Amino acid sequence: TLFEALYDYEARTEDDLSFHKGEKFQILNSSEGDWWEVRSLTTGETGYIPSPYLA
């Protein structure tokens, strides 16, 4: 399933992933509550992002 970022986000820890509004992601793991592990389709990087920032 693909999701798109609604807002920009700046990583706060080394496990987080910074991203920009409009960036698209593949969800790798959504079992961690509000923090999902994703792969950016723009950069190929993986990390955790806050799920409320996605649509």
Rank of each mutant, 00 (worst) to 15 (best):
T1F: 12
T1L: 13
T1D: 11
T1C: 14
T1R: 12
T1I: 11
T1Y: 11
L2E: 06
L2I: 14
L2N: 04
L2D: 04
F3H: 04
F3K: 01
F3N: 09
E4N: 04
E4A: 08
E4I: 15
E4S: 04
E4H: 08
A5Q: 01
A5R: 01
A5I: 04
A5F: 14
A5E: 03
A5N: 01
L6M: 10
L6T: 14
L6Q: 08
Y7C: 13
Y7V: 07
Y7A: 07
Y7H: 06
Y7N: 05
D8T: 07
D8Y: 04
D8W: 04
Y9G: 01
Y9W: 07
Y9L: 12
Y9S: 02
Y9H: 05
E10C: 13
E10Y: 09
E10K: 11
E10M: 10
E10R: 10
A11I: 02
A11L: 12
A11R: 07
A11N: 03
R12S: 09
R12C: 12
R12M: 11
T13G: 14
T13F: 15
T13P: 03
T13R: 14
T13K: 11
T13I: 05
T13N: 12
E14G: 12
E14L: 10
E14R: 10
E14A: 12
E14S: 12
E14T: 12
D15L: 13
D15C: 15
D15E: 13
D15S: 13
D16T: 14
D16G: 15
L17S: 03
L17V: 14
L17A: 02
L17M: 13
L17W: 05
L17K: 02
L17Q: 02
L17D: 00
S18W: 05
S18I: 08
S18T: 10
S18N: 06
S18E: 03
F19V: 08
F19C: 05
F19E: 07
F19K: 01
F19Q: 01
H20K: 14
H20E: 05
H20Y: 11
H20L: 10
K21M: 07
K21C: 06
K21L: 07
K21T: 10
K21D: 02
K21G: 02
K21H: 03
K21Y: 05
K21A: 08
G22K: 01
G22C: 05
G22N: 02
G22W: 04
E23R: 01
E23Q: 06
E23F: 04
E23A: 04
K24S: 04
K24Q: 09
K24V: 12
K24D: 00
F25K: 00
F25R: 11
F25T: 00
F25G: 00
F25A: 13
Q26Y: 13
Q26D: 14
Q26T: 08
Q26K: 05
I27F: 08
I27A: 02
I27P: 01
I27Y: 04
I27C: 04
I27Q: 01
L28D: 00
L28Q: 01
L28G: 00
L28A: 01
L28S: 01
L28T: 03
N29R: 06
N29Q: 06
N29E: 04
N29G: 09
S30L: 08
S30G: 11
S30E: 07
S31H: 08
S31N: 09
S31F: 08
E32R: 14
E32S: 13
E32D: 13
E32W: 10
E32C: 14
E32F: 15
E32A: 12
G33Y: 09
G33I: 08
G33K: 09
G33V: 09
D34M: 12
D34E: 10
W35G: 01
W35Q: 09
W35S: 05
W35E: 03
W35C: 09
W36V: 05
W36H: 00
W36E: 01
W36Y: 03
W36G: 00
W36C: 03
W36L: 05
E37W: 15
E37G: 01
E37A: 06
E37L: 15
V38Q: 00
V38P: 00
V38C: 03
V38A: 07
V38W: 15
V38R: 00
R39M: 10
R39G: 01
R39L: 10
R39Y: 07
R39Q: 06
S40Y: 02
S40I: 13
S40M: 04
S40P: 02
S40K: 10
S40N: 14
S40G: 03
S40C: 05
L41A: 11
L41E: 05
L41P: 02
T42C: 08
T42D: 08
T42E: 14
T42K: 11
T42H: 08
T43V: 00
T43I: 02
T43M: 03
T43S: 08
T43H: 02
G44K: 01
G44M: 05
G44P: 00
G44V: 02
G44H: 04
E45L: 14
E45C: 11
E45P: 00
E45M: 13
E45F: 09
T46G: 01
T46W: 06
G47F: 09
G47L: 06
G47C: 09
G47P: 00
G47E: 03
G47V: 03
Y48F: 11
Y48K: 12
Y48W: 15
Y48P: 00
Y48I: 08
Y48G: 00
I49N: 01
I49C: 05
I49H: 00
I49V: 14
I49Y: 00
P50W: 15
P50H: 12
P50G: 03
S51T: 06
S51I: 06
P52Q: 15
P52S: 15
P52I: 15
P52F: 15
P52A: 15
P52K: 15
P52R: 15
P52C: 15
Y53V: 06
Y53I: 07
Y53S: 08
Y53K: 06
L54Q: 07
L54F: 08
L54P: 05
A55H: 11
A55M: 12
A55I: 12
A55K: 10
A55P: 07
A55N: 10
